[in-house]
């Protein structure tokens, strides 16, 4: 029998819902804040239990507070996500059908790309090929901006990738609908949108996972095939996800 919800739980859930995605240290502060306001027993290391209580009540509604790791900085984040696909969930009114179509095509580009990014040029070119309704480039630009504001996409140097919030919510959907293409990180086994890939055996790893795995190693070698890891390690020259894997020359 799950623990009872208190106002502290409800307040925590309300704030998380409004934020969309909350960074773990913020969530910890919020946990303390809610317990203080609503005079509920607080234990700083009991955040997971706290969240479990909420999740047990969200479960019948096919909602969940889910934890995920950012592909950018490796930090943990919490998001309130929807898990179901029903006639009711399709009534969501944040975006029009056309805007959603643009989003899906953008997602396609991102997932099918080598480095997990789609250039704004490529996305805008898709705009007037939409099936539901053609969209002008200017309109599409504006829609992309809203997707970034709402934290479904994130933008860097004119290129777009999926926001951590999106990955947390859509992971299962992506893994099942992009089965052959979507990569899983060899280290943490979660979906990897941005990744470094071994030219030799093809396994992929998140950049933060690469950083962690190769820390302190003199010669970075692929964990699977043991060949020399040819990509620039993140955090050495230029950190970031823009690393393309180089053409790998056989010795």
């Amino acid at each position: 029998m799950a623990a009872q919800m208190t106002n502290a739980h409800r307040r925590f859930l309300q704030v998380l819902m409004s934020n969309g995605i909350t960074e773990a240290s913020q969530a910890r502060k919020l946990h303390q804040h809610c317990c203080e306001i609503d005079k509920v027993y607080y234990a700083h290391d009991k955040l997971d239990d706290f969240i479990s209580t909420i999740n047990s009540h969200l479960q019948p509604l096919f909602m969940q507070i889910r934890k995920g790791i950012s592909e950018e900085d490796g930090r943990a984040h919490y998001a309130v996500v929807n898990l179901a696909e029903t006639e009711v969930t399709k009534m969501a009114s944040d975006y029009t059908e056309t805007e959603l179509e643009l989003f899906r095509k953008t997602m396609d580009l991102i997932i099918l790309s080598e480095n997990g990014f789609a250039s704004s040029t490529d996305i805008l070119n898709l705009a007037d090929q939409l099936k539901t309704k053609k969209m002008k480039k200017k309109e599409a630009e504006q829609v992309l901006k809203v997707f970034v504001e709402d934290k479904w996409l994130s933008e860097k140097n004119g290129e777009y990738t999926l926001h951590t919030r999106c990955i947390i919510e859509m992971e299962q959907y992506i893994l099942s609908n992009y089965q052959d293409v979507a990569r899983k990180c060899n280290i943490c086994h979660s979906l990897a949108i941005q990744s470094q890939v071994c030219e030799c055996c093809g396994i992929g790893m998140h950049l933060p996972c690469v950083r962690k795995y190769f820390r302190g190693q003199a010669e970075p070698r692929c964990p699977k095939c043991n060949e020399f890891w040819s990509c620039d390690l993140p955090g050495t020259s230029q950190m970031g996800s823009h690393t393309h894997h180089r053409a790998h020359s056989q010795a």
Partner: peptide, 26 residues
Amino acid sequence: APTFHYMMGSFKSEPPVPKQRIERQK
């Protein structure tokens, strides 16, 4: 009241999903 926003489950239809990786010519 705070409002709940999500992406999963909001798509109205299932379009074909391209399954092949695009070979970018760098």
